[in-house]
Design a protein around this nucleic acid. Sequence first.
DNA 1: TTCTCAAGTTAGAGCTTCTAACCACAGATA
DNA 2: TATCTGTGGTTAGAAGCTCTAACTTGAGAA
Lengths: 238, 238
Amino acid sequence: MPDGSSSTSTPRQRYRDQVRGEIKQAALEQICAGGAPALSLNAVAKGLGLTGPALYKYFRKRDDLLTELICDGYDAAAAAMRAAADRVADAPPRERLLALGAAFRAWAVESPHVYQLLAGTPSPGYHAPPETVDRARGVLGPLLGVLGRGDCRGAALELRAEMRFWLNDSPAVGEWVKSWAPDVDPATALAGTVTAWARMHGVVSLEVQGLYEGMGHRAGTLLKAEMEALADAMGLPA
Amino acid sequence: MPDGSSSTSTPRQRYRDQVRGEIKQAALEQICAGGAPALSLNAVAKGLGLTGPALYKYFRKRDDLLTELICDGYDAAAAAMRAAADRVADAPPRERLLALGAAFRAWAVESPHVYQLLAGTPSPGYHAPPETVDRARGVLGPLLGVLGRGDCRGAALELRAEMRFWLNDSPAVGEWVKSWAPDVDPATALAGTVTAWARMHGVVSLEVQGLYEGMGHRAGTLLKAEMEALADAMGLPA
DNA sequence: TTCTCAAGTTAGAGCTTCTAACCACAGATA
DNA sequence: TATCTGTGGTTAGAAGCTCTAACTTGAGAA
């Protein structure tokens, strides 16, 4: 019995991976059509020409499938952020922040149901598995290098103090920050990044949930104002 | 046949109202225990000593019950905001903004599942009925009078311009703003309020969804920093 | 006192997730 | 090459859900 077959995959394994991919693809389409609660394993199976229980050979529970889709979603978002960061790598920090914010929103409105899958509570009693937390950090990583170029003032100082405390407590965080932003104050980068995250999520999640319906502003305008305000407050070089 | 029986209620009507209240109460407890998707009409009925289909005499669909709970939730949030506003009615605007932000968060963390009920997508194909939009405005109302005391700068000017456009288009909005804040520039008040809303929701929704888990900051600190930053940016008198 | 009608019942359709038991064939092994 | 193992698929079915239909009962109204 060849052990894990991680590098050279057996035909069986390759077939299995392919079908898993098709299931995920079909599930994603269903979610895009009707949101996470509209995902029915039965319907997915039918769409693939299978019967319901067959899917349980590939995913033990419905939530396992959801979790995997969530991880993929995080990866996609992280890729979008990284691509945007690369695109403006040589621009001044202020501009880079605006670009990252716009990329975040662009990805979210392009697949709103997936965004709600990541940000919302998908399922009864669903508690985000630890692996999703790590993935989420990949999305925020590119922000560290940008916000680290600013500094905290006023009430943000208290936030930065808490970040310092956190950095002292768990060295892994410091490593993570350093890997994205080697030459900046980690606590400042963290405080700025968390703030940017909260602002982006605030604007975008209200938008994708349709809560701006019947209000007279564009979400893009609001997000841009929020990012510029953050750049101002942290004195990001233009 | 006495027509609507709105003032003097018949015994029948009173009984009906009472049972409806009990159903809502039991449903709310179930939601508090396991979130919106865990709400089962069957279980609620069983808890009240009834059988499942009996509830359909009181609520036509499961979503109708949810919608009513959402409306109640908005009302509760609005009441909390109004109470906080009254408590600091004589304080300077900056302090009032902080108090409103804290009240918003306090209400949300006190009943996180209800907050997710309002802010999230509760149900497959659930589209917020128009009445909930009006209710949502009640929550934001107290902010108008506070943010209206500031002014917009930088990128917020663009947001304010869109608000002016909106005010021109639909006079009802102007009336609404005037009812909460008679003596301020409505466009500024709207721009500031929407910004405050997005920031509060950003911080609080990440918190109640547990996304801060394993991060080294307190949500209260972040929210305070966000509100102070907004006060700074809009030049709110301290 | 009679009548009406709302509240609650049981039965059941149609959906869901998920388990159990079984079959058949592809791929690995002797 | 012949045999065996185990994976991928099936059907059957349990337990749950929402929601409809049809029936019964008893309280309020006439």
